[in-house]
Amino acid sequence: MKHSTWRWISDYEKEEKWLNEMAAKGMSLYGFFMGKYTFEETEPGKYIYQIELLENFPTSPESVAYLRFLEDTGVICVASVFRWVYLRKEAASGPFELYTDIDSKIKRLSTMKNLWFTFVWLEFIIAAANLAMVIYGWLVVGQMAWFNLGCVVFLVILGLILLNFGLKPARKIKSLKREQLICE
């Protein structure tokens, strides 16, 4: 039996938790497309899931080599969106932890931080361009550019949300680096 459901989740940690709760109930994710999750019925707790952000698109040679390597260790990629991949492993073969030392944990978090901060900068530049148009319209043309003003407000709010996404891994990196001073 296959089931599918729509859901909008912005936080990958919450998403991962939800997928693992579903898997524990015997609903194992095997596909994702445009916000639609597809599940297959399996025995409860058969799989453990992890969501990973790749450094390159899943179709790039680097990512293909990495995913092939993971496959050799029993980790299967069931779906991907943008650079994010949904990975699963059979629970019977032990715990599922992709990264087991501080160095690689920091590297993973940096990839995430960089992704969000790139978006924040992009938003900021577009917002600044719109703001310039608002000021130009108001002072030079003598007309209020309401559409651009709306864009500025929208982009600033979105930017703040993305900034928050980026700050989360940034904070974790900071505490891991402190830990790294005394242990590996």
Binding site: L70, Y99, T100, D103, S104
Partner: peptide, 10 residues
């Protein structure tokens, strides 16, 4: 216990 991600990077 080496995680596959850590192992691949190393």
């Amino acid at each position: 216990n080496l995680g596959p991600g850590t192992l691949y990077g190393a």
